[in-house]
Nucleic acid binder design. Structure first.
Lengths: 138, 138
DNA sequence: GCAGACCTTCGTCTAACACGAAGGTAAGTA
DNA sequence: TACTTACCTTCGTGTTAGACGAAGGTCTGC
């Protein structure tokens, strides 16, 4: 089973630009070409790509992902470093989720604030209207 | 109580570059200057900045934040649009948290995988060692 | 035998900063 | 007074991770 770059893009929810970018930067070294030089992707490539997407979306840089992939290719001696990388990524992702939840609270507050104004038909000028009261809404 | 740009940067965990960038792009229109033309920040500026940080970290573009701020300055007629913006942001943030949690599962799997290899002193070559088995680790 | 739909590579453009350089000002100190 | 240190400013370029258009090749269907 093989896929075109467009099929892969759709399957993984990323752009063809990104896929070429990853390929050009050595992050997909096994992608084959057909007689017309078109990239052809196998399921294993898809798996790798989805790992790349996972790492990118959790904030790992392209450079670091490339390094991680190089480590894998170097073999068993690099398992310690790979382990460290994934631990760091785990921690960072947990921290980001926590951050987002905090920010979500602020946004929830804003939504409720506006909803109550709209419901009660209370104009904002009910409260002295200036930017200050708007800013964080504590 | 006023603050220097460095104090604000430290307080909010962002760079002075970012603060100047936001200021230069009209997102902090009330920041005053001292006799030497240095920016001086008040608590209300801090509140605004922390709202900017919240929106940026939940993925709103600088341009959209500027627009939101313009809406606030335009007054009560824009509450509907502001409400819509915050609702969209709320939804997007919820989606991103969900995404991150999914990715975290994948990373957790990797961490456990490496941990078990290191604990049992099992070399990776125990399993036919190639990139494929590494990729997602399902 | 040509249009349309793909594909490629190449090159420029963008957002949101990051950072260095050049130069001004203020405070501490020898 | 002169000098150093430590800020600040503006200006301009560099970076990351793509997004996108243009030019041109190739396959397919009519």
């Amino acid at each position: 089973m093989t896929y075109t770059i467009h099929e892969v893009a759709e399957k993984l929810g990323i752009s063809t630009y990104s896929i070429r970018y990853y390929n050009d930067h050595g992050m997909l070294p096994f992608v084959q070409r057909d007689a017309n030089n078109n990239r052809i992707f196998h399921d294993t490539d898809l798996e790798w790509l989805s790992m790349i997407v996972c790492l990118r979306e959790t904030g790992m840089s392209v450079k670091a992902i490339k390094h991680y992939q190089d480590l894998i290719q170097e073999g068993d001696d690099t398992i310690n470093e790979r382990y460290a990388m994934m631990c760091a990524q785990q921690e960072q992702t947990l921290a980001e989720i926590a951050d987002l939840k905090k920010h979500l609270d602020t946004i929830n507050y804003k939504v409720a604030h506006y909803a109550s104004i709209l419901e009660n038909n209370e104009p904002d000028s009910f409260v002295p209207s200036n930017l200050r009261t708007e800013a964080v809404g504590k």
